[in-house]
């Protein structure tokens, strides 16, 4: 599942979106004339407090870190409660994963401030906590959706429990788990953008600053970059899911 596999398989939509995103992050600052059409009376029409590429970098860093931690924890917890020794916790964990997703991510982000304070750290924590739920829920669905006869057959072949997990269960559940990670990342890209209201430096900064000063050009620059980032990452995940083993079995 490397980038190479995507390249070879003619996965051009994600590459196209990524190229557009990079071009926008590097080139938007040069389009002074274009944005002046929108805000003719302003002195500055290009957001200048930070370079767009840096904001893109820190936005991506936040989302990637959160996705890695919540994938590890979410899949790990799902594996634990689907073993015999952890089965006691299964009803509670699966209920919490579904009830928790009812709570809007903005509320979690907002409550991170009284609990932990302002800045990137609390934003990261909120992203991890909220991003955990879709991954946990999908991992549980994936692991529990496997036909028991398949597991029986694997055990009958003399596979050890760890082998059954790594060679049968996880590959079969991979596509559903990936769908969960995709949902989590999509939500987190949006939530991280709002994170700039609690002091994280992300692509939301130009939008918020534009809203505060009434500068539509700033808003537009931030919005274009956030939108492109979300679409690029989503199409990347779509490509990954299409190539995941177990795609055919799952359907």
């Amino acid at each position: 599942m490397s980038k190479l596999a995507v390249l070879r398989g003619g996965g051009w939509p994600p590459l196209l979106w990524l190229a557009l995103l990079l071009a926008a992050a590097l080139g938007l600052a040069e389009l002074d004339g274009l944005f002046r059409l929108i805000e003719p009376d302003r002195r500055t029409v290009i957001y200048a407090r930070a370079a767009f590429i840096d904001l893109l970098g820190s936005h991506l860093l936040l989302v990637t870190l959160a996705a890695c931690v919540s994938s590890l924890v979410g899949v790990g917890a799902a594996i634990m409660v689907t073993r015999r020794w952890g089965a006691d916790f299964l009803p509670l964990v699966s209920q919490v994963a579904s009830i928790g997703q009812t709570i809007p991510p903005v509320a979690v982000l907002a409550l991170a401030v009284p609990a932990l304070g302002f800045g990137s750290g609390p934003t990261l924590f909120a992203l991890m906590l909220y991003g955990l739920l879709p991954i946990l829920r999908n991992s549980l669905a994936g692991l529990r959706g496997i036909d028991p006869a398949v597991l029986e057959a694997a055990r009958g072949m003399g596979m050890a429990p760890l082998q059954v997990l790594c060679q049968v269960e996880l590959p079969l559940a991979l596509n559903v788990i990936l769908a969960g990670i995709r949902t989590s990342v999509t939500i987190n890209i949006a939530t991280a953008a709002i994170g700039s209201t609690i002091g994280a430096s992300t692509l939301g900064d130009p939008v918020i600053s534009g809203l505060v000063t009434g500068n539509t050009a700033f808003i537009l620059q931030g919005a274009i970059l956030i939108g492109l980032l979300a679409v690029a990452v989503d199409s990347l995940f779509e490509q990954l899911q299409r190539r995941a083993p177990g795609t055919r079995q799952a359907k």
Partner: peptide
């Protein structure tokens, strides 16, 4: 579903310019 993937802050922001 394409619209759903666009973050809320971005969609709100993109609507501001044409509406104003």
């Amino acid at each position: 579903s394409f619209i759903q993937t666009i973050p809320s802050l971005a969609l709100f922001g993109l609507l501001i310019a044409p509406l104003s």
